[in-house]
Amino acid sequence: MASQGTKRSYEQMETDGERQNATEIRASVGKMIDGIGRFYIQMCTELKLSDYEGRLIQNSLTIERMVLSAFDERRNKYLEEHPSAGKDPKKTGGPIYKRVDRKWMRELVLYDKEEIRRIWRQANNGDDATAGLTHMMIWHSNLNDTTYQRTRALVRTGMDPRMCSLMQGSTLPRRSGAAGAAVKGVGTMVMELIRMIKRGINDRNFWRGENGRKTRSAYERMCNILKGKFQTAAQRAMMDQVRESRNPGNAEIEDLIFLARSALILRGSVAHKSCLPACVYGPAVASGYDFEKEGYSLVGIDPFKLLQNSQVYSLIRPNENPAHKSQLVWMACNSAAFEDLRVLSFIRGTKVSPRGKLSTRGVQIASNENMDAMESSTLELRSRYWAIRTRSGGNTNQQRASAGQISVQPAFSVQRNLPFDKPTIMAAFTGNTEGRTSDMRAEIIRMMEGAKPEEMSFQGRGVFELSDERAANPIVPSFDMSNEGSYFFGDNAEEYDN
């Protein structure tokens, strides 16, 4: 993207840094990872977990959730003011799984939030270390993106479920800051804005008074975040219109849905970061690795190297396929839920299948599930090659597409044709070009129609051997075009429920 120079890199967003050079960025990201790792080690000690239990991804998720809940100030305040039966607002906890007599047992633990905050700050040299908290939120978000298709949420806001490739980060909490905003897809931002506008339509006082002023500035800020994701002048001009509207209503909703559809071809720039579970960072720190000293990046080879040398386990339900569970977590670790499966298959070195073909449910185990038949197995999170994460949407291309997802959002900077089903997408653009945004709409449609099938995206960008740390010898991959490109292809993934 041309304006790259004016933006802070995501590592800076990730670490609240002012302008830093590459070495400083690597050190501050490393410091953040160190903090998460030290916190995780301490929690495993508190909970008396064995090494194996500490490497269980379900335990990692519970521990991450506990610290996120302990620092969720708004919710904590709300819980104190609106006490609900049987919930102690000062405590947080969740299921911890232990191996007892050759069987997995679930144990519900409860801790004072104050105590968890103390352990977290102690692991982070006394700081609140917001960057580390956001990092864990993005890992949870990436896992949700890989596990669930947001059909219901899309339909509720009037969008087409086939636009799911635009929904990265749709389950990120509001408090995820600049680093969170960077990884949100165009569809996620559109959905947040539509929800806001709908509230304004239904509630006369939404934009009024002292609160209304705050609401208005939040609305304009979200519009600017979305505008910054678009790469064409016409899309940005249309966002200006939406932002400046005196009284946002149905016309703005129409414009936003139009823009979301246009992003299936004229893709937005959305950041991709490899955020790993805390149970990967903990053992690495415990083994003596100093992330701050060595430096770390979320968008280069580092996460690949770390996963190459990590042992992570997962509980497996009786009829689940461990290899499929591994694929789910591998995609989440690489922030690749909406990437082209052919690119992923090449990088991973084994075939990556669409969601609907995987015999696996989510990673988390519900409290009512029976533990008797639970097994555990090693997650295979290694890769054959590594590639640089991208934040450009890439230019655009036609490809055989599917009944489910009709476009992709690249996660890796790797040369390819970008699949999208042009006739299906263009069919949504018939007729409606009147109104105050008509010239911009016409211009956007013209650009979409001009998108050429034979153009290559990320020209000359390749993948790298894991021994090639400096990215000196790019390998331009070859793809098996007979395979499906979309992950949520004609899909039956479970729906995400809060």
Rank of each mutant, 00 (worst) to 15 (best):
Y289W: 09
N473K: 02
A27R: 01
I96L: 08
N432G: 15
L49F: 09
G431W: 02
L344C: 13
R117Y: 05
A85F: 13
L166D: 13
L418N: 10
L68V: 15
R75V: 08
E254Q: 05
Y97G: 05
V299H: 10
A123P: 06
K184E: 12
V109H: 05
W386T: 11
R118Y: 10
C164K: 02
I225T: 15
S310T: 14
V190D: 06
F412P: 09
Y496W: 15
R75C: 13
W120T: 08
L264A: 05
K90F: 02
T146C: 07
D127H: 15
I41P: 06
I257M: 04
M159A: 03
A401N: 00
A233S: 08
G268L: 12
F206C: 14
R342S: 07
R26L: 05
E292Q: 08
M136T: 13
K351A: 05
M426W: 03
G349W: 02
F464I: 12
G35D: 10
R416I: 06
D34S: 03
A286E: 09
Q168V: 13
G54H: 00
E73S: 05
E495Y: 15
S60C: 00
R382I: 14
D302W: 05
G209S: 13
F429A: 06
A251R: 02
P161F: 04
R8M: 11
M196L: 13
L68H: 15
T130Y: 06
E495R: 07
E53F: 04
T424Q: 15
I138K: 07
I138T: 06
V414T: 00
E114D: 15
P419V: 00
D255V: 05
I116Q: 09
D51T: 00
T134Q: 06
A336W: 10
T157P: 01
K48S: 02
G288K: 10
R342A: 00
I201C: 02
M456Y: 01
I406V: 08
R162N: 13
L276G: 12
F479S: 08
R216A: 02
E114T: 06
L306V: 15
S438W: 04
E254K: 09
M448I: 08
L315Y: 14
D145E: 09
R382N: 00
E64V: 05
K293R: 05
A263G: 04
K305E: 06
R118F: 07
R441E: 13
L172V: 09
L56R: 05
I41A: 00
N432F: 15
P318Y: 06
L328V: 07
I197T: 14
R19H: 06
V463I: 06
M238R: 08
N211E: 04
E375H: 15
I425H: 11
R355H: 10
S367A: 05
P303Y: 10
E292W: 07
E449L: 02
G249K: 05
L256T: 05
D127G: 04
R446A: 01
I347W: 00
N483T: 12
Q58H: 03
L306M: 04
E495C: 10
K305S: 05
S482M: 10
R246F: 07
P283A: 00
I194P: 03
E339N: 12
G212K: 08
R174A: 04
I138E: 10
N397M: 01
A234P: 15
Y219K: 10
I201P: 09
L56Q: 04
Y289E: 07
L307Y: 15
I116N: 06
L133E: 09
R121D: 07
M167S: 04
R156K: 05
D480N: 06
L68T: 00
T396A: 15
N492E: 12
L306I: 15
A323T: 13
K98Y: 14
A2D: 10
H140D: 07
G86N: 09
H82R: 12
I57F: 15
A131C: 05
K452Y: 01
R461H: 08
T378L: 01
V476G: 08
D101E: 13
R208G: 13
D34R: 14
F429P: 03
A373N: 01
T396S: 03
R441P: 13
V280H: 12
T157W: 08
M137E: 07
S84H: 02
D51Y: 02
G450N: 00
V242F: 02
A471S: 06
R361K: 14
N202F: 00
P303M: 10
S376R: 05
P277A: 14
D240Q: 15
Y487V: 03
R441K: 09
A237M: 02
L172N: 10
T188L: 07
L61G: 02
N202V: 02
I365N: 12
N250I: 14
R446D: 14
G200T: 00
N483I: 15
K98A: 05
K198G: 12
C333V: 00
P477E: 08
Y148T: 13
E292P: 05
I36C: 10
F346T: 01
A451R: 15
F338G: 02
I365Y: 12
A442S: 08
D340Y: 03
Y289K: 08
D160R: 09
D203V: 04
Y78T: 06
D421P: 08
A2S: 07
G132L: 08
G282L: 08
E53D: 15
E14Q: 14
S353Q: 09
G132D: 09
A401W: 03
K351M: 10
F420Y: 06
L226A: 04
M43S: 09
E369D: 05
N432E: 01
F412L: 15
L307Q: 14
E11K: 12
V363I: 05
N309G: 00
V312P: 03
